[in-house]
Design a protein around this nucleic acid. Structure first.
Length: 307
DNA sequence: TATATTGTTACACC
DNA sequence: TGGTGTAACAATAT
């Protein structure tokens, strides 16, 4: 489940690998996942052949100047006056295949079978778009097809709805204790877990990292914001940066389908204390990790370490 | 075949 | 009005 650290991993890797490459051809295998313009979210249902043609026409011949991240959104800055915004949602993947690292396997290709990587067949059953670049091939895979690729003219970037709504970037210097406290105290009756998941309060935190942050802050997910002492809110704030940075250092958490751009897994999963560990012993105290539903999401926590 | 899965929006309620 | 909670939705694997 790509969250801030996973999307940051993809953005950094793509920025390094794709910078200054030219888009030589574009294949769209799931037309409903692409759209054009700032207000087109979520993309309309069904295929629109004319729109797909236009999407390809715009992208063709463009050079990729940079790949950045805002919240969980990837932003490809193209040489023309266009940007491509990509959301991976639950199961999106970008895999870049360097022709030098290809192994031919019965008509299709797969990545070098590194130890820390699933066997990826490219293109695969869930490949939704293929970008032939000047230095290799970029595959966009998405099992669920909840993600999207959206082209926006640079003049209209400021009108993109999701960009307008995102709250502060938790790793930015400007994300001070005061900014966090002001944002979170607006919602005294919400559960702390739900508030951390709210992209307008803090951008980019999803289920994995909110659970981990609350574990390290020793706060139960269902606690109401208004019931937390200032010292407890401080503890939550203090854990946001370190936990997210650890995720980035580990190149993300390969829970579900997440892979890096070379097809390998991130290693953050090994460092989880609670997420995905329901029924297992707490790494700190041995108590069995429990789970509960808040805001329609599953939260895992240690009933002994977290109060 | 019912269920689980997540980010996001829509909507009802107070 | 806006905070709050719930449901719905996208599509697929299991």
């Amino acid at each position: 489940m790509p969250e801030l650290p996973e999307v940051q991993t993809v953005a950094s890797e793509l920025n390094r690998k794709l910078k200054n490459q030219t888009i030589l051809s574009v294949k769209i295998l799931a037309g409903k996942m692409v759209s054009i313009g700032p207000k087109t979210l979520p993309p309309k249902r069904g295929e629109d052949a004319a729109l797909v043609r236009k999407f390809i026409q715009i992208a063709l011949g463009q050079k990729i100047l940079s790949v950045k991240r805002r919240a969980k959104l990837l932003i490809f800055d193209l040489s023309g006056p266009w940007s491509m915004l990509v959301h991976l949602k639950m199961t999106g993947q970008f895999i870049f295949e360097d022709p030098k690292l290809r192994i031919k396997t019965g008509g299709s290709y797969r990545l070098l079978n590194k130890k820390n990587a699933p066997l990826v067949k490219l293109p695969g059953k869930h490949t939704r778009a293929v970008f032939e670049l000047s230095g290799g091939t970029l595959y966009f895979n998405d099992v669920r097809q909840f993600g999207y690729l959206k082209l926006v003219h640079d003049d209209e970037i400021s009108q993109v709805r999701e960009l307008q709504r995102f709250g502060p970037e938790p790793l930015a210097k400007s994300f001070s204790r005061e900014v966090f406290l002001a944002a979170i105290k607006k919602y005294p009756k919400r559960k702390i877990k739900d508030t951390l998941l709210d992209a307008e309060v803090v951008a980019g935190i999803g289920n994995i990292y909110s659970d981990e942050i609350l574990f390290h802050a020793q706060i139960q997910p269902a606690r109401l914001v208004g019931s937390l002492k200032l010292s407890e809110l401080d503890a939550v704030y203090a854990q946001i940066g370190p936990v997210l940075r650890q995720g980035i250092r580990a190149k993300g958490s390969s829970v579900g389908d997440f892979v890096r751009t070379d097809g390998s897994w991130g290693s953050m999963g090994k460092h989880h204390f609670v997420y995905g560990r329901k029924g297992q012993a707490c790494k700190k105290c041995g108590t069995i990790i429990q789970s509960m539903k808040t805001g329609g999401r599953t939260s895992s926590f240690c009933p002994s370490c977290q109060k």
